[in-house]
C-alpha cells in the first residue's frame, strides 16, 4: 500500500464523547486550535463519522452511550482507526467500578491507540497520532505481497545460512519433544 504516506498526512478526525467530564475534550480542542495546530499534519476535525478516518473517543462509556458509540464506529468508512483519549476511556478511570459505565472504550469497539492521562496534554495527543502513523506503517508492511516483503528483507542482509540451520535444529528438537510426549502417553 503506497497510499499510506498520503493517507497518514490527511487524517480527518471525528470526536465522540461517551460520557467524559469534558476535560479530555477541552484538551482535544487545544490540540486542534492555533497553539498546537494539528492541521499542520493534515489533521482536521470533521462533523460527521462518514468523513472521518480516526474516531477520537473519550469517556468511560456509559450504558446509554454504548450502542450509539458502536453505531458511530460502524458508520465510518474503511480504513478506520480509533484513538482513545484519557484514563476513563482507557480503563474506566475513577469510574472503574461504577454501576452504569462499561469501563473503557475497548469494551465495545477495537481501539488502536490509547492516550493515558487525566486529562492528557495536547503533546500527548499529538504523540498518539505519531504512534498511529507507526501502526499504519506496520499494517501496510504486513499487507504487502509476500514476494516484495522477502525482497525487502533480503536487502537487510540477514545471514541466510544461519537462520536455515537454526530452524532445522529447532525442527529436530520439536520432533524429539513430540515423540517423547507421545511415548509418555
Amino acid at each position: 500500500m503506497r497510499q499510506t504516506n498520503t493517507f497518514k498526512k490527511s487524517l480527518w478526525v471525528f470526536h465522540l464523547n461517551t460520557g467524559s467530564c469534558n476535560g479530555c475534550d477541552i484538551e482535544i480542542v487545544a490540540t486542534l486550535t492555533p497553539r498546537y495546530d494539528a492541521e499542520r499534519f493534515g489533521i482536521k476535525l470533521v462533523g460527521t463519522p462518514r468523513h472521518a478516518d480516526v474516531l477520537i473517543a473519550t469517556g468511560p462509556v456509559t450504558k446509554e452511550m454504548a450502542d450509539r458509540a458502536k453505531r458511530v464506529y460502524e458508520q465510518m468508512p474503511e480504513p478506520k482507526y480509533v484513538m482513545c483519549v484519557g484514563s476513563c476511556g482507557s480503563t474506566g478511570g475513577v469510574f472503574y467500578d461504577s454501576y452504569n459505565t462499561l469501563g473503557g472504550i475497548d469494551k465495545i469497539i477495537p481501539v488502536d491507540v490509547y492516550v493515558p492521562g487525566c486529562p492528557p496534554r495536547p503533546e500527548a495527543i499529538i504523540h498518539a497520532f505519531v504512534k498511529l502513523w507507526e501502526k499504519m506503517d506496520k499494517k501496510a508492511e504486513k499487507s504487502r505481497p509476500v514476494k516484495k516483503r522477502k525482497q525487502a528483507n533480503k536487502n537487510k542482509t540477514v545471514n541466510k545460512d544461519k537462520t536455515v540451520k537454526r530452524s532445522k535444529i529447532v525442527n529436530k528438537r520439536s520432533t524429539i519433544l513430540t515423540k517423547r510426549i507421545t511415548e509418555q502417553k
Binding site: Q3, S10, D53, P79
Partner: peptide
C-alpha cells in the same frame, strides 16, 4: 493529499 486519501476510502 485529501483527494488521494478520499479516493482510497470506502464509499458508503
Amino acid at each position: 493529499r485529501d483527494l488521494v486519501k478520499l479516493l482510497a476510502k470506502e464509499t458508503i
